[in-house]
Write a protein that binds this DNA or RNA. Structure first.
Lengths: 145, 145
DNA sequence: TCTTACTTTATAATCGTTATAATTAGTCTA
DNA sequence: TAGACTAATTATAACGATTATAAAGTAAGA
């Protein structure tokens, strides 16, 4: 059993356990998210699967990404650009994004708990979470310029 | 001379120095951004000024926000929700956002330089900048619930 | 099998933002 | 001040991502 098929089974069990029906479309979207190792947009997923599901509606992709999000399997990444990207939740990590080509690379760093607790004491908020992205130029683009 | 009128003059001088013409609309948008002390959307600015400029086009707001951004006077904040917000650049700071009412509060914290340099060495990127937002529930909303 | 709720599909609607073209206004020079 | 050039504004249409709607299909339980 491969690494990603184990992840897929685990995700499917997770969904089943909260009463989500596993349709062929859902399976395929999940599989694509896990195997692609990238952070695709809804439209990229839609296009990647149109060979297998010529009749699938783009709404199905959006609907199911929402279902996966609600189940905690997927995170929606919203950067400045036009469309959201979707990331399978594995372990917590940040992202570093190339200003030149848009590539997104995972970046592991211990959670910034001190920042959260300071923010809490300074602002009086109950802090729940934070997000951080780092921007720069990736090695490939550095080489090209 | 008030605090904000000094800021407005400084911003206008800045714009003039790079050859940007100061029109009444530009003055008003800038003034609103500086005086409102909030982080308005383009549409909020448009609505706030329609009393003074009944014929102003929404495109004018967008155009000028882009001009201000290019001059380094304004930052565009893109969160998950539908529309961008715009923030006058003063000193560097982060934002803390209420999950319940959407309020955005400035939060000063020393720049996370260590994170940037670690990211640089781990990923091979040339790091230029980062963004961080903290999410939680603001004191007002805590009281209400 | 019947029923019920869920899912997918096709399509239209929505909404923030951008592009276009025409008009207006500022600025420079003669 | 007139004339000419350029930039800015306006009105409007276009665009693209996402969401809503309604109809048709599908799974699962009684």
């Amino acid at each position: 059993m491969t690494m990603s098929s184990a992840k897929i089974s685990a995700a499917i069990d997770n969904l089943k356990s909260v009463g989500v029906r596993i349709t062929p479309q859902r399976h395929a979207i999940l599989e694509h998210l896990i195997q692609s190792m990238s952070h695709p947009t809804a439209d990229e997923i839609y296009k990647a699967l149109e060979g297998k599901f010529p009749n699938m509606s783009v709404a199905t992709v959006y609907n199911n990404l929402r279902v996966f999000k609600e189940a905690g399997l997927v995170k929606e990444l919203t950067y400045g650009d036009s469309s959201s990207r979707f990331d399978c939740v594995t372990t917590d990590h940040y992202h570093i994004i190339c200003d030149s080509c848009g590539k997104i690379v995972d970046f592991h760093y211990p959670g910034l708990d001190e920042v959260e607790s300071l923010a809490e004491s300074v602002t009086g908020f109950d802090v729940g979470r934070h997000r951080m992205e780092i921007y720069g130029v990736c090695p490939d683009c550095k080489r090209k310029h």
